[in-house]
Structures are given as C-alpha cells and as structure tokens.
C-alpha cells in the first residue's frame, strides 16, 4: 500500500490527478485510514483543478464544490469577486456611476478612479452639449431671410403684415428681442463729421 501511495503522490506531483487507492482491499486499519485521507486529497485536487482551469479562461459560471475543500476556498473567493466585478462593470456600462469596488487593493483604487473619471467626463460632455444646444437655438433665431427697409433699415418681424407699420421695428429692438445682445448708443466718426462738424475736427 505504501508503495502504491508513493506512486500516486508522484503522479500528483507531476501535475496529474491519480486514480483513487482501492481502500476495500486494504486489511491494515491504519493503512486504510491513510489511503482514505490520500483519496480525499486527490479528490480535492481534482475538484480544485477542474474549477481553476475554466476560471483562468474567464469562465465564471456557477460552481459547486464540496465543503471543507480548503484548497479551493481562496479560489471560490476570487470567483465571487470576479462575478461581482462583472456585474458592476455591466452596471457602469449602462451609465450607473454609483458602483464602487471595496477592499480589493490597488484594483479598487483603479476601478473607482475610472468610474469617477467616467462620471466627470460624462457630466462635462453633457454641459458642453447643453451650451452648444443653447448656442444653436440662438443661431436658429437669426437664420433665414430678414426683410429690411432699404431706406430706414427697419426690420419686419417674422411673418407680420408688410403693409402695417407696426410690423417694422428698429434693428436694435429686433436684435434685443431675438438674442441676448444689448445695445449702447454712440456715434461713428463719419456721422460725427456730418452731424457735429465743429466737434469732429480734432
């Protein structure tokens, strides 16, 4: 039995899971007990191996493992954390920036910074879009053909009756109404010459 056990352990150390030792045929009670325990180790190793292999390829399907398999428990914990991260990433992808990763060392910090950055970037983008939309609205208010009097330069408001004098307004009044611009009145040099020649000489 000892010889068989050594052989099985050697197989295990070579990276293969050995077949179980046949305990029924062992007559010595101590040897049978040892063989049973070795079989348990082989079983744990097999179970752990079967679990880690898909996990190493990113397969996070639900797993069931026998209790007391202490070899696998850290991997179960890792499996649980990865499944949680997968769920959190899905939520972030859908725009939920409330998610935070706790107690996963440097990864927590990196992941949480990423979420904060995404959140800030999105807020900044939304602000920019908002500003642009507002600017676009202003542009729209001034686009198209404006009917303007060739002589007095008054502008006709929208589709009002062209024969009604009330439809025509000063350009300052028109622009103030349509945009946020405000006017301050002054006189250009040419008009100054015409209107106030005495003052314009200097």
């Amino acid at each position: 039995m000892i010889e068989e056990s050594i052989e099985k352990l050697a197989t295990l150390l070579q990276g293969k899971i050995p077949d179980k030792i046949e305990t029924e045929i062992i007559t010595n009670e101590e040897h049978r007990h040892l063989a049973t325990m070795l079989n348990q180790i082989f079983e744990f190793m097999q179970e752990t191996h079967e679990f880690i292999e898909p996990l190493s390829k990113g397969d996070l399907h639900e797993i069931s493992m026998q209790p007391k398999n202490f070899l696998s428990s850290p991997f179960k914990e890792l499996h649980s954390r990865l499944r949680h991260l997968t769920w959190q990433t899905e939520q972030v992808a859908q725009g939920d920036y409330n998610q935070r990763v706790d107690f996963m060392g440097d990864f927590s910090e990196a992941f949480n910074s990423m979420i904060t950055a995404l959140d800030n970037n999105e807020k900044q983008l939304k602000r920019k879009i908002d500003e642009l939309e507002k600017a676009l609205t202003h542009i729209k208010t001034l686009e198209g053909l404006l009917p303007i009097c060739a002589n007095c330069k008054k502008i006709r408001v929208d589709d009002d009756n062209p024969k009604d004098q009330k439809s025509w307004s000063q350009i300052e009044a028109f622009l103030t109404k349509k945009t946020n611009a405000q006017f301050t009145h002054t006189i250009c040099p040419e008009c100054m010459k015409k209107l106030y020649p005495d003052f314009s000489q200097g």
């Binding site: 949680h84 939920d96 409330n98």
Partner: peptide, 24 residues
C-alpha cells in the same frame, strides 16, 4: 442599482460585512 450601492456602503461603514452582488 443605487439602492444596492447604498446598502454596500452602509454595511461597510457599519462594519457588518462587504456586500457584493454577483447577479441581479
């Protein structure tokens, strides 16, 4: 999702445990 994030935060702050959602 916001509720879960809040629950996770409160359980952490109160040192009850570290909650993680695997599937919803």
């Amino acid at each position: 999702n916001e509720f879960v994030a809040q629950l996770q935060q409160v359980l952490k702050e109160e040192a009850v445990g570290i909650l993680r959602v695997e599937k919803a």
